[in-house]
Design a protein around this nucleic acid. Structure first.
Lengths: 109, 109
DNA sequence: ACATTTGTTCCACAGTATAGGACAAATATG
DNA sequence: CATATTTGTCCTATACTGTGGAACAAATGT
């Protein structure tokens, strides 16, 4: 297992952090599409959630079913401290690498 | 080909942007190890450089050999505008997702 | 000639990203 | 009650990215 988070892994953890209240798959997906302005397939999302939980960055459990049409039990998620720390490490590293790069566009003569 | 950059791809592009003067493999590698504080194997670096060039984010060419022991021709790199734009897109997206997350650590009660 | 130094390429494999269909579990309805 | 509809998760297959290290290439040194 790599010491660092992939791009999409970061986005998923951040979406959960933003939502806060034990969100489940559907809201998480919506939050990513809205916040990152990027299409997300269901499969991609759950695969990543599984991996993040296996790494100990996330915890999940099943809620009770609700009395609504299709209101089956939902798999809720919570960001664990280790997840937040991994997120911070990635951010710190990227921020550090961006220092001194600025607006020069990279096409110097 | 994904629309977004992987974590390591970002780091490689940033290292080249920071170095500026048509750097080649060895200095790029050193810059990453120093700047990102992360170990980089040669193979990992060149594989990523090749992919970034194939995507049109980077341009490379071979320099003349120099009169030094082992001073063979070097493969020099330059960040292309498309590379800088891709980098900016990734940064903008991550910055947007970080908004509202702050220091709460993610382990709310 | 052959050793040493510096650099790059190749190869094999692990890990991450992606899409979409299959499947499960609830209520609605005739 | 049998079946349709709705909501949500799981599974499977495949492409792309990340990884390390050995092999190879091309200079000068001795």
């Amino acid at each position: 297992m790599s010491e660092y988070l992939g791009e999409f892994e970061q986005i998923v953890l951040l979406a959960i952090a933003r939502l806060g209240e034990s969100p489940y798959g559907v809201p998480i997906r919506r939050e990513i599409e809205k916040g990152a302005r990027r299409r997300v397939s269901v499969g991609a999302l759950y695969a990543t959630l599984d991996r993040l939980e296996a790494k100990g960055y996330l915890h999940s459990w099943f809620s009770e079913a609700t009395a609504q049409r299709g209101g089956r039990s939902k798999r809720c998620f919570r960001l664990l401290p280790a997840g937040f720390e991994a997120l911070s490490r990635s951010k710190t590293m990227l921020d550090r690498m961006w220092q001194g790069v600025s607006i020069e566009g990279g096409s110097r003569a």
